[in-house]
Protein backbone atom coordinates (compact mmCIF):
# COMPACT_ATOMS: atom_id res chain seq x y z
CA UNK A 1 0.00 0.00 0.00
CA UNK A 2 1.07 3.57 -0.69
CA UNK A 3 2.83 5.01 2.38
CA UNK A 4 1.12 8.39 1.90
CA UNK A 5 -2.33 6.81 2.12
CA UNK A 6 -1.24 4.74 5.11
CA UNK A 7 -0.15 7.94 6.88
CA UNK A 8 -3.52 9.56 6.20
CA UNK A 9 -5.26 6.48 7.58
CA UNK A 10 -3.18 6.65 10.78
CA UNK A 11 -4.00 10.35 11.19
CA UNK A 12 -7.68 9.46 10.68
CA UNK A 13 -7.44 6.85 13.44
CA UNK A 14 -5.88 9.41 15.83
CA UNK A 15 -8.68 11.91 15.12
CA UNK A 16 -11.26 9.17 15.65
CA UNK A 17 -9.75 8.50 19.09
CA UNK A 18 -10.02 12.20 19.82
CA UNK A 19 -13.79 12.09 19.11
CA UNK A 20 -14.09 8.84 21.08
CA UNK A 21 -12.68 10.27 24.34
CA UNK A 22 -15.55 12.67 25.15
CA UNK A 23 -18.07 10.19 23.71
CA UNK A 24 -16.74 7.65 26.20
CA UNK A 25 -18.36 9.74 28.90
CA UNK A 26 -21.44 10.42 26.84
CA UNK A 27 -20.45 13.85 25.48
CA UNK A 28 -21.13 14.25 21.76
CA UNK A 29 -18.42 16.82 21.05
CA UNK A 30 -17.57 17.52 17.42
CA UNK A 31 -14.81 20.03 18.19
CA UNK A 32 -11.93 17.75 17.15
CA UNK A 33 -11.27 19.28 13.69
CA UNK A 34 -11.06 22.75 15.23
CA UNK A 35 -8.31 21.69 17.64
CA UNK A 36 -6.65 19.71 14.84
CA UNK A 37 -6.50 22.89 12.73
CA UNK A 38 -5.11 24.93 15.64
CA UNK A 39 -2.41 22.31 16.29
CA UNK A 40 -1.46 22.32 12.63
CA UNK A 41 -1.11 26.11 12.62
CA UNK A 42 1.17 26.00 15.67
CA UNK A 43 3.51 23.56 13.90
CA UNK A 44 3.30 25.39 10.56
CA UNK A 45 4.02 28.82 12.08
CA UNK A 46 6.89 27.64 14.27
CA UNK A 47 8.66 25.59 11.61
CA UNK A 48 8.34 28.20 8.87
CA UNK A 49 8.93 31.27 11.09
CA UNK A 50 11.52 30.23 13.68
CA UNK A 51 14.94 29.25 12.20
CA UNK A 52 15.75 26.87 15.06
CA UNK A 53 12.65 24.80 14.20
CA UNK A 54 13.33 24.74 10.47
CA UNK A 55 16.91 23.48 10.90
CA UNK A 56 19.68 23.84 8.34
CA UNK A 57 19.90 20.40 6.71
CA UNK A 58 17.67 18.71 4.15
CA UNK A 59 15.25 17.71 6.89
CA UNK A 60 14.13 19.73 9.90
CA UNK A 61 15.30 18.41 13.29
CA UNK A 62 13.13 15.77 14.96
CA UNK A 63 13.31 17.35 18.46
CA UNK A 64 11.76 20.48 16.93
CA UNK A 65 8.78 18.37 15.82
CA UNK A 66 8.41 17.00 19.33
CA UNK A 67 8.48 20.50 20.84
CA UNK A 68 5.88 21.65 18.27
CA UNK A 69 3.66 18.71 19.18
CA UNK A 70 3.87 19.58 22.87
CA UNK A 71 3.07 23.25 22.18
CA UNK A 72 0.25 22.37 19.75
CA UNK A 73 -1.27 19.99 22.26
CA UNK A 74 -0.87 22.54 25.05
CA UNK A 75 -2.58 25.36 23.09
CA UNK A 76 -5.46 23.11 22.01
CA UNK A 77 -5.79 21.82 25.57
CA UNK A 78 -5.78 25.36 26.99
CA UNK A 79 -8.54 26.46 24.61
CA UNK A 80 -10.55 23.40 25.62
CA UNK A 81 -9.93 24.14 29.30
CA UNK A 82 -11.03 27.75 28.88
CA UNK A 83 -14.32 27.00 27.12
CA UNK A 84 -14.96 23.50 28.50
CA UNK A 85 -16.62 24.61 31.73
CA UNK A 86 -19.60 26.45 30.25
CA UNK A 87 -19.79 24.37 27.04
CA UNK A 88 -19.98 21.01 28.79
CA UNK A 89 -23.09 22.12 30.66
CA UNK A 90 -24.89 21.64 27.35
CA UNK A 91 -26.36 18.26 26.61
CA UNK A 92 -26.76 15.96 23.63
CA UNK A 93 -27.45 17.65 20.35
CA UNK A 94 -27.00 21.13 21.89
CA UNK A 95 -23.43 20.25 22.78
CA UNK A 96 -22.86 18.79 19.31
CA UNK A 97 -24.01 21.96 17.58
CA UNK A 98 -22.20 24.28 19.99
CA UNK A 99 -18.97 22.42 19.22
CA UNK A 100 -19.67 22.65 15.48
CA UNK A 101 -20.08 26.40 16.04
CA UNK A 102 -16.75 26.41 17.86
CA UNK A 103 -15.07 24.71 14.89
CA UNK A 104 -16.53 27.33 12.56
CA UNK A 105 -15.45 30.21 14.83
CA UNK A 106 -11.91 28.81 14.97
CA UNK A 107 -11.96 28.42 11.18
CA UNK A 108 -12.94 32.05 10.66
CA UNK A 109 -10.29 33.19 13.16
CA UNK A 110 -7.62 31.09 11.44
CA UNK A 111 -8.70 32.52 8.10
CA UNK A 112 -8.53 36.15 9.22
CA UNK A 113 -5.56 36.41 11.58
CA UNK A 114 -2.83 38.62 10.07
CA UNK A 115 -0.11 35.93 10.31
CA UNK A 116 -1.86 32.72 9.15
CA UNK A 117 -1.67 33.35 5.42
CA UNK A 118 -5.37 33.92 4.74
CA UNK A 119 -7.23 31.49 2.49
CA UNK A 120 -3.99 30.22 0.93
CA UNK A 121 -2.60 29.25 4.31
CA UNK A 122 1.02 28.42 5.07
CA UNK A 123 3.26 26.78 2.48
CA UNK A 124 6.59 24.96 2.38
CA UNK A 125 6.45 23.51 5.88
CA UNK A 126 9.84 21.80 6.43
CA UNK A 127 9.93 18.03 6.50
CA UNK A 128 11.35 16.18 9.52
CA UNK A 129 11.32 12.94 7.51
CA UNK A 130 12.71 12.57 3.99
CA UNK A 131 10.34 9.72 3.11
CA UNK A 132 6.64 9.13 3.85
CA UNK A 133 7.71 5.87 5.52
CA UNK A 134 9.34 7.96 8.25
CA UNK A 135 5.98 9.64 8.96
CA UNK A 136 4.25 6.27 9.00
CA UNK A 137 6.65 4.87 11.61
CA UNK A 138 6.39 8.02 13.74
CA UNK A 139 2.59 8.25 13.56
CA UNK A 140 2.24 4.53 14.20
CA UNK A 141 4.22 5.00 17.41
CA UNK A 142 1.96 7.93 18.35
CA UNK A 143 -1.17 5.88 17.63
CA UNK A 144 0.19 2.95 19.66
CA UNK A 145 0.80 5.31 22.58
CA UNK A 146 -2.72 6.76 22.30
CA UNK A 147 -4.25 3.25 22.14
CA UNK A 148 -2.21 2.14 25.13
CA UNK A 149 -3.43 5.15 27.13
CA UNK A 150 -7.04 4.39 26.14
CA UNK A 151 -6.55 0.78 27.22
CA UNK A 152 -5.06 1.92 30.54
CA UNK A 153 -8.09 4.15 31.03
CA UNK A 154 -10.34 1.06 31.29
CA UNK A 155 -8.44 0.03 34.43
CA UNK A 156 -8.27 3.45 36.08
CA UNK A 157 -10.87 5.04 38.31
CA UNK A 158 -11.09 7.92 35.81
CA UNK A 159 -11.99 5.57 32.98
CA UNK A 160 -14.66 3.84 35.01
CA UNK A 161 -16.05 7.20 36.13
CA UNK A 162 -16.29 8.20 32.45
CA UNK A 163 -18.18 5.00 31.61
CA UNK A 164 -20.51 5.60 34.56
CA UNK A 165 -21.33 9.12 33.34
CA UNK A 166 -22.02 7.74 29.88
CA UNK A 167 -24.48 5.18 31.20
CA UNK A 168 -26.26 7.51 33.63
CA UNK A 169 -24.93 10.93 34.54
CA UNK A 170 -27.32 11.48 37.42
CA UNK A 171 -26.55 8.11 39.00
CA UNK A 172 -22.82 8.75 38.54
CA UNK A 173 -23.13 12.07 40.37
CA UNK A 174 -25.10 10.34 43.14
CA UNK A 175 -22.29 7.88 43.86
CA UNK A 176 -19.86 10.74 44.31
CA UNK A 177 -18.29 11.11 40.86
CA UNK A 178 -17.35 14.72 40.13
CA UNK A 179 -19.13 14.74 36.76
CA UNK A 180 -18.19 18.25 35.49
CA UNK A 181 -14.55 17.60 36.35
CA UNK A 182 -14.48 14.19 34.65
CA UNK A 183 -16.20 15.52 31.53
CA UNK A 184 -13.72 18.40 31.38
CA UNK A 185 -10.76 16.00 31.58
CA UNK A 186 -12.15 13.97 28.67
CA UNK A 187 -12.75 17.15 26.63
CA UNK A 188 -9.25 18.52 27.26
CA UNK A 189 -7.64 15.14 26.51
CA UNK A 190 -9.57 15.03 23.24
CA UNK A 191 -8.39 18.53 22.29
CA UNK A 192 -4.81 17.70 23.22
CA UNK A 193 -4.76 14.60 21.04
CA UNK A 194 -6.30 16.50 18.12
CA UNK A 195 -3.76 19.33 18.50
CA UNK A 196 -0.80 16.91 18.54
CA UNK A 197 -2.21 15.10 15.50
CA UNK A 198 -2.56 18.43 13.68
CA UNK A 199 1.11 19.24 14.32
CA UNK A 200 2.20 15.99 12.65
CA UNK A 201 -0.31 16.40 9.83
CA UNK A 202 0.85 19.93 8.97
CA UNK A 203 4.37 18.64 8.31
CA UNK A 204 3.12 15.64 6.38
CA UNK A 205 0.82 17.67 4.10
CA UNK A 206 3.54 20.31 3.67
CA UNK A 207 0.96 23.13 3.66
CA UNK A 208 -1.82 24.07 6.05
CA UNK A 209 -4.93 26.21 5.67
CA UNK A 210 -8.24 26.87 7.39
CA UNK A 211 -9.97 24.10 5.44
CA UNK A 212 -8.27 21.56 7.73
CA UNK A 213 -10.96 22.19 10.32
CA UNK A 214 -14.46 22.42 8.86
CA UNK A 215 -17.99 21.25 9.46
CA UNK A 216 -17.50 18.36 7.01
CA UNK A 217 -14.53 17.15 9.00
CA UNK A 218 -16.60 17.27 12.22
CA UNK A 219 -19.16 14.92 10.79
CA UNK A 220 -16.62 12.71 9.02
CA UNK A 221 -14.68 12.13 12.22
CA UNK A 222 -17.94 11.31 14.01
CA UNK A 223 -18.66 8.83 11.22
CA UNK A 224 -15.30 7.14 11.97
CA UNK A 225 -16.40 6.49 15.52
CA UNK A 226 -19.98 5.45 14.79
CA UNK A 227 -18.84 3.22 11.94
CA UNK A 228 -16.09 1.50 13.91
CA UNK A 229 -17.98 1.29 17.19
CA UNK A 230 -18.11 3.87 19.96
CA UNK A 231 -17.84 1.72 23.07
CA UNK A 232 -14.28 0.31 22.83
CA UNK A 233 -11.16 2.08 21.60
CA UNK A 234 -10.39 -0.42 18.78
CA UNK A 235 -13.69 0.71 17.22
CA UNK A 236 -12.71 4.31 16.38
CA UNK A 237 -9.24 3.18 15.32
CA UNK A 238 -10.68 0.67 12.84
CA UNK A 239 -13.33 3.16 11.67
CA UNK A 240 -10.72 5.89 11.16
CA UNK A 241 -8.41 3.59 9.20
CA UNK A 242 -11.16 2.16 6.98
CA UNK A 243 -13.15 5.31 6.22
CA UNK A 244 -10.01 7.35 5.45
CA UNK A 245 -8.85 4.68 3.02
CA UNK A 246 -12.23 4.16 1.38
CA UNK A 247 -12.43 7.22 -0.93
CA UNK A 248 -8.90 6.44 -2.18
CA UNK A 249 -9.60 2.74 -2.66
CA UNK A 250 -12.75 3.65 -4.59
CA UNK A 251 -10.77 5.80 -7.03
CA UNK A 252 -11.05 3.20 -9.84
CA UNK A 253 -14.84 3.70 -10.01
CA UNK A 254 -14.22 7.34 -10.99
CA UNK A 255 -17.18 9.70 -10.69
CA UNK A 256 -19.22 7.23 -8.68
CA UNK A 257 -16.57 7.27 -5.94
CA UNK A 258 -18.16 9.73 -3.52
CA UNK A 259 -21.65 8.39 -4.20
CA UNK A 260 -20.46 4.94 -3.12
CA UNK A 261 -18.72 6.52 -0.12
CA UNK A 262 -22.04 8.10 0.87
CA UNK A 263 -23.77 4.75 0.43
CA UNK A 264 -21.28 3.08 2.78
CA UNK A 265 -21.85 5.77 5.43
CA UNK A 266 -25.61 5.40 4.96
CA UNK A 267 -25.69 1.60 5.08
CA UNK A 268 -22.98 0.99 7.70
CA UNK A 269 -25.07 2.02 10.74
CA UNK A 270 -28.10 0.16 9.35
CA UNK A 271 -26.24 -3.14 9.20
CA UNK A 272 -23.89 -2.56 12.14
CA UNK A 273 -25.84 -0.36 14.58
CA UNK A 274 -23.22 -1.01 17.29
CA UNK A 275 -20.33 -0.35 14.91
CA UNK A 276 -17.90 -2.90 13.56
CA UNK A 277 -16.11 -3.52 16.87
CA UNK A 278 -18.29 -4.80 19.71
CA UNK A 279 -17.40 -6.56 22.93
CA UNK A 280 -18.82 -9.86 21.66
CA UNK A 281 -16.92 -9.75 18.38
CA UNK A 282 -13.70 -8.86 20.19
CA UNK A 283 -14.31 -11.75 22.58
CA UNK A 284 -14.83 -14.14 19.66
CA UNK A 285 -11.65 -12.88 18.04
CA UNK A 286 -9.71 -13.46 21.26
CA UNK A 287 -11.05 -17.00 21.51
CA UNK A 288 -9.95 -17.64 17.93
CA UNK A 289 -6.53 -16.17 18.60
CA UNK A 290 -6.16 -18.35 21.67
CA UNK A 291 -7.06 -21.46 19.66
CA UNK A 292 -4.74 -20.85 16.72
CA UNK A 293 -1.25 -21.21 18.26
CA UNK A 294 -2.36 -24.17 20.35
CA UNK A 295 -3.41 -26.10 17.26
CA UNK A 296 -0.23 -25.31 15.44
CA UNK A 297 2.18 -25.76 18.31
CA UNK A 298 0.55 -28.71 20.08
CA UNK A 299 3.09 -31.41 20.84
CA UNK A 300 2.32 -34.59 18.89
CA UNK A 301 3.75 -37.07 21.34
CA UNK A 302 5.27 -36.75 24.77
Amino acid sequence: MDAGLLEQMLLGALLALSVYLPLRCGQLSLATPGFYAVGGYVAALLSTGVPAFAGTGATSPLPALLVEMVLAGALAGLIALAIGGPVLRLRGIYLAIATIALVEILRVINLNLPFTGGAMGIFGIPQPFAQPEGYVAFTLALLALACWLCQRLEALRLGRAMAAIRDDELAAACVGIDTPHTKLIAFVASALLAGVTGAVAAHFFNSWNARAGSFDASITTLAFVVFGGSRLWPGPVLGGLLLTALPELLRPVGDLRLILFGAVILLGPLFFPQGLVTAERLQRLQTLAALLPRRRGAPLAP
Binding site: L222, V226, I265
Partner: peptide, 26 residues
Protein backbone atom coordinates in the same frame (compact mmCIF):
# COMPACT_ATOMS: atom_id res chain seq x y z
CA UNK B 1 -34.89 1.45 9.09
CA UNK B 2 -33.29 2.86 12.26
CA UNK B 3 -36.67 3.60 13.83
CA UNK B 4 -37.89 0.12 13.06
CA UNK B 5 -34.86 -1.35 14.81
CA UNK B 6 -35.14 1.12 17.69
CA UNK B 7 -31.48 1.97 17.15
CA UNK B 8 -29.54 4.77 18.86
CA UNK B 9 -30.87 8.10 17.43
CA UNK B 10 -27.25 9.25 17.10
CA UNK B 11 -26.95 6.89 14.13
CA UNK B 12 -29.44 9.00 12.18
CA UNK B 13 -26.86 11.82 12.12
CA UNK B 14 -24.56 9.50 10.18
CA UNK B 15 -27.12 7.84 7.90
CA UNK B 16 -28.63 11.19 6.93
CA UNK B 17 -25.15 12.55 6.30
CA UNK B 18 -24.58 9.57 3.99
CA UNK B 19 -27.83 10.37 2.17
CA UNK B 20 -26.69 13.99 1.83
CA UNK B 21 -23.30 12.97 0.43
CA UNK B 22 -25.06 10.75 -2.13
CA UNK B 23 -27.45 13.53 -3.19
CA UNK B 24 -24.75 16.21 -3.53
CA UNK B 25 -22.48 13.97 -5.58
CA UNK B 26 -25.38 12.76 -7.69
Amino acid sequence: PLRRRRADPLLALITSLGAGVILVNL
